[in-house]
Amino acid sequence: MVKEIERAGIPIVHMCNIVPVSKTVGANRIVPTISIPYPLGDPATSREDQWKLRYHRVRVALEALATDVEEQTVFPV
């Protein structure tokens, strides 16, 4: 799905847990998440911690959309 949207020239960032899968499929902007059932907030941690984690990773994703990349890029979090 990521590829079809990018093919139309719309920049898209893939937030996912198993980064090698995203790379193999061909996403170009990738931001890692923390797990499969809860990509952006571990329920074992406090609401504040979940918010902080989610805010940080989504912000990295937004900035990835405004970043020029030459090759498949995994943005550090």
């Binding site: 799905m1 990521v2 590829k3 079809e4 949207i5 139309a8 719309i10 920049p11 898209i12 960032v13 893939h14 937030m15 996912c16 847990n17 995203s22 998440t33 499969i36 059932p37 990509p39 952006l40 989504v58 994703a61 937004l62 959309l65």
Partner: peptide
């Protein structure tokens, strides 16, 4: 196929960029 169905809607609404969250 599903992405190709969604795409024209995004374009019609002038979406500039997308975030896809996968599990």
């Amino acid at each position: 196929r599903m992405a190709k169905e969604i795409l024209p809607l995004l374009q019609a609404d002038n979406v500039d960029a997308c975030i896809m969250v996968s599990t």
